[in-house]
């Protein structure tokens, strides 16, 4: 899985980085490259660690990839 996780806003990206830091997972805030994701412009976190675990941590704290909860992504 891609280590760059797209988040809904720069605020979510900041919040995610802070949260992951508490779990000792290093995350760097990055702009989403053009053509990656459904619409251009936006921020994400690049994860240095287990991506699946990271997503689990983020979602259990109300931070969803692209701002969408899993049910909404279907």
């Amino acid at each position: 899985m891609d280590n760059l996780l797209r988040l809904a806003s720069v605020t979510d990206a900041m919040k995610a980085r802070e949260l992951l830091g508490k779990h000792r997972i290093r995350a760097v805030i990055k702009r989403i490259p053009a053509g990656k994701g459904e619409s251009s412009c936006g921020y994400g976190v690049y994860i240095y660690g287990n991506v699946n675990k990271t997503i689990e941590i983020l979602e259990s704290n109300g931070i969803f990839l692209g701002g969408l909860a899993p049910d909404d992504r279907l």
């Binding site: 809904a8 806003s9 720069v10 605020t11 979510d12 459904e38 619409s39 251009s40 412009c41 936006g42 921020y43 701002g67």
Partner: peptide, 16 residues
């Protein structure tokens, strides 16, 4: 908002 710029609709997420 600097986010989801290709979308013509206003983002619903807070605070954007």
């Amino acid at each position: 908002t600097g986010s989801n710029s290709a979308d013509y609709n206003q983002p619903l997420i807070l605070p954007d």
